[in-house]
Write a protein that binds this DNA or RNA. Structure first.
Length: 855
RNA sequence: GCGGGCGUGGCGGAAUUGGUAGACGCAAGGGACUUAAAAUCCCUCGGCCGUAUGGUCAUGCCGGUUCGAGUCCGGCCGCCCGCACCA
């Protein structure tokens, strides 16, 4: 009598059993012996308190890899923890009057319970949260080591300041010039901030990222662009007019086009350039101009692009190569202080921004690059700069040179004149990490009026966050805490103050992978790192992954990590999002999927019967209400079905659309899978037969395993799922073939259970048990493929005439070409087709195709 | 503007990387079983012509290379992502 599979009882049972057996605990290097190691890591979650489908997909993928590696004999480390510092906890504290720590640990407990239901093969013995004092204490020690090594420093810098929340905002937290939370106009403020010296590794970070072959090309490109290396010349223009105080040597500029120096017609300073600021002190006009520049927001690129603003300072500088030639010094809104030196020379003929500026303010335009087909006497530039290839002209000693040669020659000349040198510039800037927040890692230094910045002695770490804090007013609770910041200077003993800024939470996630490997043991860290397979969202392509690469280098250089390459993640996979159709009610409100019903081609609101408009398919989000709660899905269908569904249809790197019918299909398939094993439950053990039917079944099984194996290795889980579907169909068909194939079916079922384990581990265990498998299938080795069974002795080849398929022949594998050719020519459809025509040649591609070419 | 990616049935997507296009799934339609439903099973399912064997068109569009192109090359069109006045 056929039975049905009940996920609710089975899933709980197996999870308990796995826990008891400590099945997923990583072995120490010693215990592992000769087994190769595999460190499989998914980006750890922020403990929001609710699991969402994006988590399910992310962790299901990592689990497939981890379980597959384990079955293939690897010593697997697959840990989990919590990225637990951050603003949501402080927001909750303000809104719900609950301490951020309490709120966070409650969320962790709730989320861990949800995680448990997914049946992930995680080693929870290494769990930590970044807000654990042990973790952030270790991070503080690391910070101090980096400080001693010069990798951390303090400097004054401009920041986005929210005047209502009294805090610094990250660039991405500023939306249309306003704070994302308070809605207040963000101010630019000069504050002394802590910085990580990430630019020290700019060259290395750029070079090494190109070598990470198991990273997506897209991410590597994004990182390279972010680092933004450019080669050029940094030089100074000496004064023609009297030098302003403090700028005696001239103006430093950076250019990537020293070949166009003879086309220079002006110098432009950033509105934030120190000289601009100095000049503005004595000039109301310039002050007003600077204010006007500041008004143009950081967003709305289109508006920003439209208008070039300029202010003539009246100062002039000398052209380095042309005696007596001078250039006016302007202030221009399009020159950025944050790149290069904050000053440029303008060559309007060959730079679009410069030509826009020159035309507006009526400045000289002298072309110096002649296009390959251009005529030196007639070539002019109107309103469009020429940025293409060509040779240099109108340029004295550079005339006739290629752009490349002219760049080199110009740099050499400037260097000889002592005015500058060829340099490399990076877009990447040092990482500002000071945050005026409570719920983050305290920066472990003390400010003393006598001694300056004094590190907190190591034996006093961790610098703990105080518990008794209030969130009833804006600003940093650490700063207004009555006692916390008042301490004696560790150096001189006089009263001093703690640093009240905390670290950017990106710091916490920049080294957690090393902590998972071992809290303290450098050898264990060296054993596990780098992470063999990292899995996470592409939204972290730049920031998190760049910061983590920086930290790995910094840890290496302060002796915290034995990792010569400095690369923490050898393999990276970025998975797509989970999307869902959106629904809007007649009154324009977003509706949850559970609140609507499909009625033929139309949708109605279940409660009211109102007409519902289905909207675009978008990433699941609370604001659009197009979310599906994993808990509800697990309660209805089981975790295996949820896992199966998010891996089944779409390629892992692309988005997957969650649909009700799709998940129902997955549930149907789970029952179908079960029936394969259920039908074999009471069958006596039997060896596979050698008859044709048995052989066909065995071939289906062995081919399927080979395909699934390859698909998993290549991160094509959807293909693995398709293979399993086909395999199951073959095994179901074989049920009708009688006693003779029972042995082959049993062999297939045993292999199938093991292949199923990475995807539907609970169902796989139940199936394994049903056919009398030994121990846990989660601990069973991957099935061994008999190569002989994956190859057929005969092959069907298409027969084409002039590239069009006209028939097919089946020939023994490896048959000689002339025999294959003869067989093709003997086909009735071929004979009738080529009758009366002359055969020019016949192409035989062994094992694939025969193509007969006729006139 | 710069950089990267992608266009295949009603839908998500396969296609051993130049060799039988549409695997597998979803949806749809038809049928079996059933008093009925659920569940399950079977069949059909790119367009056009044809009762059918079959023919023909077809992988965004145009062209090229090749015995052979979804795949390679050139040019368009469209969509997505990242960066964006980076000198």
């Amino acid at each position: 009598m056929a039975t049905r599979y009940d996920p609710q009882t089975a899933e709980q049972k197996w999870r308990d059993a796995w826990d008891q057996a400590e099945l997923f605990k990583a072995k120490s290097p010693k215990e592992a012996g000769d087994a190769p190691k595999a460190y499989v890591l998914e980006m750890f979650p922020y403990p929001s308190g609710r699991l969402h489908m994006g988590h399910v997909r992310n962790y299901a993928m990592g689990d497939v890899v981890a379980r597959h590696r384990r079955a293939n004999g690897y010593n697997v480390l697959h840990p989990m923890g919590w990225d637990a510092f951050g603003m949501p906890a402080e927001n909750a504290a303000m809104e719900k009057k609950v301490h951020p720590g309490k709120w966070t640990y409650q969320n962790i407990a709730a989320m861990k319970a949800q995680f448990a239901k997914l049946g992930l093969s995680l080693d929870w013995s290494r769990e930590f949260a970044t807000c654990d004092p042990e973790y952030y204490g270790a991070q503080q020690a690391l910070f101090l080591k980096m400080l001693a090594k010069g990798l951390v420093y303090r400097k004054a810098s401009k920041v986005n300041w929210d005047p209502v929340d009294n805090t610094v905002l990250a660039n991405e937290q500023v939306i249309d010039g306003r704070g994302w939370r308070s809605g207040a106009l963000v101010e630019q403020r000069e504050l002394t901030q802590w910085f990580f010296r990430i630019t020290q590794y700019a060259e290395d970070l750029l070079e090494e990222v190109q070598k990470l072959e198991r990273w997506p090309e897209k991410v590597r490109t994004m990182q390279a662009n972010w680092i933004g290396r450019s080669e050029g010349l940094q030089m100074r223009f000496e004064w023609d007019s009297a030098a302003p105080a403090g700028f005696d040597d001239g103006i430093e500029i950076f250019t990537t086009r020293p070949d166009t120096l003879f086309g220079a017609s002006f110098i432009a300073l950033s509105p934030d350039h120190p000289l601009t600021i100095q000049l503005a002190r004595d000039s109301n006009h310039l002050q007003l101009f600077r204010a006007k520049c500041a008004q143009v927001g950081t967003s709305e690129e289109a508006i920003e692009k439209a208008e070039k603003l300029g202010f003539d300072t009246g100062l002039t500088v000398k052209h380095p190569f042309v005696d007596g030639k001078t250039l006016p010094v302007w202030v221009a809104n399009f020159v950025l202080m944050g790149y290069g030196t904050g000053a440029i020379f303008g060559c309007p003929a060959h730079d679009q921004r410069d030509i826009d500026f020159a035309r507006k303010f009526d400045l000289d335009v002298t072309p110096v690059v002649l296009p390959p087909d251009g005529d030196a006497t007639s070539f002019t530039v109107k309103n469009e700069a020429y940025t293409g290839p060509g040779s240099i002209f109108n340029s004295d000693f550079l005339n006739g040179l290629s752009i490349v040669d002219a760049k080199r020659t110009a740099i050499e000349r400037i260097e000889a004149m002592g005015l500058g040198a060829g340099t490399v510039n990076y877009r990447l800037r040092d990482w500002g990490v000071s945050r005026q927040r409570y719920w983050g890692c305290p920066i472990p230094v003390i400010h003393c009026d006598s001694c300056g910045v004094v590190p907190v002695p190591l034996d006093q770490l961790p610098v703990r966050l105080p518990e008794d804090v209030t969130f009833d007013q804006p600003g940093n609770p650490l700063d207004r805490h009555p006692t916390w910041k008042h301490v004696d200077c560790p150096a001189c003993g006089k009263p001093a103050r703690r640093e009240t800024d905390t670290l950017d939470t990106f710091a916490d996630s920049s080294w957690y992978y090393a902590r998972f490997a071992s809290a303290t043991d450098m050898e264990e860290r060296a054993y596990w790192l780098p992470v063999d397979q990292y899995v996470g969202g592409v939204e972290h392509a730049v920031l998190h992954l760049l910061y983590a690469r920086f930290f790995a280098r910094a840890m290496r250089d302060v002796g915290e990590l034995d990792l010569p390459s400095g690369e923490p993640f050898a393999g990276l996979f970025t998975q797509g999002m989970v999307t869902h159709e959106t629904y809007k009610s007649a009154s324009g409100q977003w509706l949850e999927p559970s609140a609507v019903t499909q009625d033929g081609d139309t949708w109605i609101e279940t409660a009211t019967g109102g007409i519902v408009t289905p909207g675009p398919i978008e990433k699941m989000s609370k604001s659009k209400k197009n979310t599906v709660d994993p808990d509800a899905i697990i309660a209805q269908f089981g975790a295996d079905v949820a896992r199966w569904f998010v891996l089944s249809d779409s390629p892992p790197e692309r988005d997957v659309e969650w649909t009700q019918s799709g998940v129902e299909g997955a549930a149907r398939f789970a029952q179908r899978l079960w029936s394969v094993f259920d039908a074999l439950a009471d069958t006596a053990k039997a060896e596979p037969g050698t008859d044709a039917d048995s052989l066909a079944v065995r071939k289906a099984s062995h081919k399927a395993v080979a395909g699934i194996d390859k698909a998993i290795e290549e991160f094509r889980f959807n293909s693995a799922v398709a293979s399993i579907h086909e395999w199951v169909t073959a095994l179901k068909k074989a049920e009708a073939a009688g006693e003779a194939v029972t042995g082959a079916r049993l062999e297939g079922a045993s292999m199938l259970a093991r292949c199923l384990t990475p995807f539907m581990p609970h169902l796989a265990e139940t199936c394994w048990e049903r056919i009398g498998g030994e121990g846990f299938v989660s601990a069973a080795p991957w099935p061994v493929v008999d190569k002989a069974l994956t190859e057929d002795d005969s092959v069907t080849m298409a027969v084409q005439i002039n590239g069009k398929r006209r028939g097919e022949i089946t020939v023994p594998k490896g048959e000689a070409n002339d025999i294959v050719e003869a067989a093709a020519h003997a086909l009735p459809e071929v004979i009738s087709f080529i009758e009366g025509k002359s055969v020019k040649k016949t192409i035989v591609v062994p094992g694939r195709i025969v193509n007969i070419v006729v006139a």
